[in-house]
Design a protein around this nucleic acid. Sequence first.
RNA 1: GGUGAGAUAGUCAAGUGGCCAACGACGGCAGACUGUAAAUCUGCUCCCUAUGGGUUCGAAGGUUCGACUCCUUCUCUCAUCACCA
Length: 399
Amino acid sequence: MLEEALQEISRGSSEIIDNERVEKLVKRFLETGETYTVKAGFDPTAPDLHLGHTVLLQKLAAFQKFGGRIQFLIGDFTAQIGDPTGKSETRKQLTPEKIKENSVSYTEQVFKILDREKTEVVFNSEWINPLGAVGMLELTTQYNVARMLERDDFEKRYKGGVPISVSEFIYPLLQGYDSVFLKSDIEIGGTDQKFNLLMGRHLQRAYEVGKEQAVLMMPILEGLDGVQKMSKSLNNYIGVNDEANDMFGKILSISDDLMWRYYELLSSKSLTEIAEIKAGVDNSSLHPKKVKESLALEIVERFHSKELADGAKIEFEKVHAKSQIPTDIAEFELEGPIWIAKALQECKISPSTSQSRRDIKQGAVKIDQIKVEDEQLQLETGEYILQVGKRKFAKAKVK
RNA sequence: GGUGAGAUAGUCAAGUGGCCAACGACGGCAGACUGUAAAUCUGCUCCCUAUGGGUUCGAAGGUUCGACUCCUUCUCUCAUCACCA
């Protein structure tokens, strides 16, 4: 049992600091039922969760199975500073109302994965605001600039002459202070958060909390392109609120290599099971597409339902394998007669008539499954299924 | 505050009076091949019913038959020197 628990907890993680402590906590839970706290911080600036976030959430869910009580921290205060990790852009200030609004939609999505009973949602402004100037000053005495500059991205920026704002130094300190206040036993985060996570340990020692949190880091999930991290701004993400059909399609569109990555980090299949599947593909007894399908089914089912997942699969086959027309397509009413290029634009499947013309020239435009050859074509009264490329459809009712 | 450099399409980046709607790269879209995978190859990539017209190259003016290219002012970025708390 202990073995199993530890395996599930460490699965997919890129690094665990103080693994012994994790083992001890889990062991104690299994023997005595005593729980421990696992902290994870989230930024309320972007309220839409995608699968990249769920890598962490699933890890939290795994902890919940083995005695972890989750401290789901919404960094409403720290969001005002902006995490210096990665790019350094000044953040927009969020109003308290907006933050509240975001965190509501956040938690709604989160509880698709986490057990509400074993989760405590906390906001760090709650203890950072009362800190005041004195507390803040005291906090800054706990670390020095030289060590701060050891951090990779700071070092690079410093050497490269890229400015570093002093407030950015404050960020890791505050995140670490969260761990002091919450007396967290374990904190989990992405590998990119290593510095900040370790700060939690450092500060817990400095403030004599009586324990130092263990740290578990998860790799950053690659987006649909397979190269860059999944993020909304790169538009390579699969949102947990995506429609079942979209979600299914997006998962099937990832490359085979990336599929294994998703299996490891997102699937709830055991590692041995996954290894077996991979062996099957390697010796050609399993078709990679089938394997990808079952991954897609699993994930769609998690965020929607079995019915919708199956439906999405059928729909997908209908549209792509048999190149039929999807069941649900947007309808538009147009004034006829209307030029085809204009109609495509009106139906929002082409950004401009210029683009429409180019697409027609390339033979990418179909009406009722028949390729359009004449770019001057006028649509008379009637109903048409318009199509651009393989995936863009619209139904046009011309009056 | 001084000095110097720069601001060009989604991004990077050429162009330094007409040949520029603007080289190239990336991204994106489409076609072929497929498993709507990847890889590869090809075409397209400001808008407008178009062998034409319109609006673009940080902003506003000016010079010119004609400016992305020259001049003036402004805004912003970056580098660098100095100074002050």
